[in-house]
């Protein structure tokens, strides 16, 4: 299947024609609506909030933010950013309630620190993995984006970004950049292994009554199994147990102890702790 990301940069790919097609297609609208409601569920907002929509396009996702009923904690006020003028033009014609910006999220997020309660992004951030000119890099664009986003969210805020990574490299590049910016990050995958699998990057900003990361977010949700890569790594470490007497780790430990006492200790090398070869 061809990926629009591989064809043209977003501001050129979504021209008047593509933008209209995208917004009119009932299939796309359906998928977008489902993903937005899932993202809202993950954001778990209790009261009318101030939300940033990154890559808002024609406002398909923003529209749903304005439509959340008061019983569910809405309606929310939102600001949308998108790089495609044609998409924003369609949004204008559809008279969405949010405030719109023509901006490149890879150039940063130009808001005061602590502005937003939450951020949402539907099918947008994989575009950041493409550098369109030689003076920018994908890593640099991702870094600027996540640093800006981290600063503009208030403490205890959350961001949910649904994205389509091309492969595992892109997936880890995006989540790695988010973690470097300071977010607590986790990925939620819906319908894994199927063609319609959807990835949600759930980002949390520490403080303000919210503890932990995505595992706290999905706590209490049905049909979610948690695969914690960190726990697995810790288990492997623990399974090895303390170093046994005579093995390399034990020898190195003893040598360190002796060196600390001021004794003369032979230098360690790759041969330390190995058996001598049999002489004959």
């Amino acid at each position: 299947m061809s990926r629009p990301e591989d064809i043209l940069p977003p501001d050129l790919f979504y021209n008047d024609n593509e933008s209209r097609k995208y917004t009119k297609s009932s299939r796309i609208r359906n998928i977008q609506a489902n993903m937005t409601s899932r993202a809202l569920e993950l954001l778990d907002l209790k009261s009318p909030s101030f939300i940033l929509d990154l890559g808002c396009g024609s406002g398909l996702s923003g529209e749903m933010l304005s439509e959340v009923t008061p019983e569910e904690g809405g309606p929310h006020t939102w600001i949308g950013m998108d790089i495609s003028p044609s998409m924003l033009d369609v949004a204008l014609q559809r008279e969405v309630e949010g405030d719109l910006f023509l901006a490149d999220i890879g150039q940063g997020v130009p808001f005061r620190p602590g502005t937003f309660d939450a951020a949402i992004s539907i099918s947008a951030i994989q575009w950041l993995c493409n550098a369109e000119t030689s003076d920018v890099t994908a890593e640099g664009r991702l870094r600027r984006f996540f640093e800006g986003l981290y600063a503009s969210l208030r403490r205890g805020g959350r961001a949910v970004c649904q994205f389509y990574p091309k492969n595992d490299v892109q997936r880890s590049m995006i989540s790695g950049a988010a973690i470097k910016a300071g977010f607590g990050a986790g990925i939620l995958e819906d319908d894994p292994g199927t063609k319609s699998s959807k990835l949600y990057l759930v980002l949390t900003v520490g403080g303000g009554g919210l503890t932990g990361d995505i595992t706290g977010v999905v706590n209490g949700m049905d049909d979610v199994s948690v695969l914690d890569a960190r726990r697995k790594a810790a288990e492997i470490n623990n399974a090895r147990g303390p170093p046994r007497k005579g093995d390399k780790a034990w020898i190195l430990h003893k040598k360190e102890q002796m060196a600390k006492k001021g004794k003369v200790v032979k230098a360690s090398s790759k041969y330390t702790g190995r058996k001598r070869r049999i002489a004959f």
Partner: peptide
Amino acid sequence: KEGIANFLLPSHLV
């Protein structure tokens, strides 16, 4: 323009 602010920057300002 039409309520939409243009925050695209030329690359030397980024």
